[in-house]
Computed example of a mutant assay.
Amino acid sequence: MLDLRPPAQPPMTRAFALLPLLAALAALAAPRPAGACDCALLGPTFHPPYVPEAFAAAVTTTEEVAGLTCRPARRGRLACTWSARYVLTRAGATDVPLTFAYPTGADIVVRLGGDIVASSIAALDPRFGVGQRELFVTWPAGQVNDIVVEVRADLQIGPAACGCDAGRTTNRRRHPLVSPAGLPDYAVDYRPQPGPESVRLSLELRRPWREHRPGLFPGGEGRRITRDLRKDGDEPIKLAFKTPLRLDPGGPIAGVGLGFSPEGLRPRLRLGWELAWPQMWVHSLVIETDARARVAVIPAWELTYPRVPHRLVPDSGVGVGAPIQLAPLARPGVRVFARLGWLWCHLLGTFDVYPAFRGAPPERLGSLMLQFGL
């Protein structure tokens, strides 16, 4: 009978055949270099008054001052005010149309010579693009030829978009629904006109902050920093910074499993809330019960990765807690625990020791639970 099976390969040949697969897995699991996430942060963009080409030769900007002031808002956002001031000079007595481009969602007010000439509501339909709108103003011929243009825009700024994976911080990977904004990075772009040669910029953030490269402003807290910057052609000026001490909301946790106690094996249920601050230190407060007689409140603290190098790498951590048993006997205890899992699903193992207390003998309890986050 003819044997149609392929000839058997020696073990070494089979090992070499697996090398490409092993190399691909190693590349996926390998941590990224430190500079891999140095990407361009994308945020809302502001523009100075735009003069159409037919009128541009007759209008000159002699002074340009702009500033950004922000304060913390809900869900990791910043409530910011962009204010700008321009001194325009025209060579002839004619109507000059001006266009103001501003980010979608901002409320903007434009003043000419101190008088409000235009304003917007965030619910207006976009005039162009998805992220930008524009406002049209006429500088009438009857006004003076040197005029002060003031712009004020109020908006909320969320964490800046970036090409890197922003979903691997502790709060984000464990609670993707409650903590959608995992990175405390913010950015605002300003695209000035070629003239004048310099612009005066200021930045004020009412909490500690640290600026991204290139650092235009030194970090500060609750103070306004102003700098005169020379323009680099048509290149935008980026205000990109982070708030390293921001407290993220974290999210709820729920777990179910088995626990052992002096009564034997029983179900173990837990429900609570946890958050990470800073991102490597997880704080939690939960209620646990065996659904029969035991109830305990457990504050706990866990040390984990602030970021995981790859999605295939499990999220692990170890921690300690201070369980306070409420039933059947009120008594304090000590807990150690370990966690291992991916994203919002984890395997949690705990071990509690309750020392002798008010005549009651010491007790040792443990559990193995499957825990979920939202």
Results as ranks from 00 to 15, higher is better:
residue 166 A to W: 05
residue 168 R to W: 08
residue 127 R to K: 14
residue 186 Y to W: 11
residue 153 A to Y: 04
residue 195 G to Q: 11
residue 132 Q to F: 10
residue 137 V to G: 06
residue 147 I to N: 03
residue 210 R to Y: 06
residue 223 R to H: 05
residue 130 V to T: 15
residue 187 A to W: 02
residue 220 G to L: 06
residue 195 G to R: 08
residue 151 V to C: 04
residue 131 G to W: 12
residue 194 P to L: 02
residue 154 D to N: 12
residue 205 L to F: 10
residue 156 Q to M: 09
residue 193 Q to T: 10
residue 216 L to A: 14
residue 160 A to G: 07
residue 188 V to L: 07
residue 216 L to S: 09
residue 199 V to A: 13
residue 193 Q to P: 01
residue 148 V to M: 10
residue 180 P to V: 08
residue 208 P to E: 04
residue 215 G to E: 14
residue 147 I to H: 05
residue 184 P to E: 05
residue 162 C to S: 14
residue 189 D to V: 00
residue 133 R to W: 04
residue 196 P to D: 10
residue 142 G to I: 00
residue 192 P to K: 05
residue 206 R to C: 06
residue 179 S to L: 00
residue 127 R to G: 14
residue 222 G to S: 14
residue 150 E to P: 10
residue 164 C to A: 15
residue 186 Y to K: 11
residue 199 V to D: 06
residue 145 N to T: 14
residue 193 Q to F: 01
residue 200 R to E: 15
residue 156 Q to G: 11
residue 215 G to A: 14
residue 204 E to Y: 07
residue 163 G to V: 03
residue 147 I to G: 01
residue 148 V to S: 10
residue 126 P to E: 13
residue 129 G to E: 14
residue 217 F to D: 06
residue 149 V to L: 09
residue 201 L to G: 01
residue 199 V to I: 15
residue 155 L to D: 01
residue 207 R to E: 14
residue 129 G to Y: 11
residue 213 R to C: 12
residue 137 V to W: 06
residue 205 L to H: 03
residue 204 E to W: 08
residue 214 P to R: 07
residue 223 R to Y: 02
residue 128 F to V: 10
residue 136 F to P: 01
residue 156 Q to L: 13
residue 150 E to N: 12
residue 194 P to A: 04
residue 166 A to I: 08
residue 167 G to P: 00
residue 167 G to T: 15
residue 183 L to Y: 02
residue 197 E to G: 02
residue 176 P to I: 08
residue 137 V to Y: 06
residue 163 G to K: 06
residue 155 L to C: 01
residue 186 Y to D: 09
residue 146 D to T: 15
residue 172 R to V: 02
residue 155 L to Q: 06
residue 147 I to M: 14
residue 169 T to H: 01
residue 145 N to S: 13
residue 199 V to H: 07
residue 144 V to F: 04
residue 175 H to M: 10
residue 207 R to P: 00
residue 215 G to Q: 13
residue 162 C to P: 04
residue 147 I to A: 02
residue 140 P to C: 10
residue 152 R to M: 11
residue 160 A to Y: 03
residue 193 Q to K: 07
residue 213 R to G: 13
residue 173 R to T: 02
residue 149 V to E: 05
residue 206 R to Y: 10
residue 190 Y to M: 05
residue 162 C to N: 08
residue 203 L to H: 13
residue 196 P to W: 09
residue 217 F to R: 05
residue 194 P to D: 05
residue 171 N to S: 15
residue 206 R to D: 15
residue 137 V to T: 08
residue 193 Q to C: 00
residue 218 P to M: 07
residue 143 Q to E: 15
residue 171 N to F: 03
residue 169 T to W: 00
residue 220 G to A: 15
residue 139 W to S: 02
residue 164 C to I: 03
residue 190 Y to G: 04
residue 185 D to I: 05
residue 135 L to H: 07
residue 172 R to P: 00
residue 217 F to M: 10
residue 214 P to Y: 08
residue 196 P to R: 10
residue 176 P to T: 10
residue 181 A to P: 00
residue 194 P to I: 04
residue 181 A to S: 07
residue 151 V to F: 03
residue 197 E to W: 00
residue 163 G to E: 12
residue 177 L to F: 09
residue 179 S to V: 00
residue 169 T to G: 13
residue 197 E to T: 09
residue 135 L to E: 07
residue 186 Y to N: 11
residue 174 R to S: 09
residue 127 R to Y: 11
residue 183 L to F: 04
residue 190 Y to C: 03
residue 183 L to H: 04
residue 159 P to W: 05
residue 212 H to S: 13
residue 150 E to D: 15
residue 194 P to N: 05
residue 141 A to G: 03
residue 221 E to D: 15
residue 140 P to T: 08
residue 179 S to Y: 00
residue 159 P to A: 11
residue 219 G to R: 03
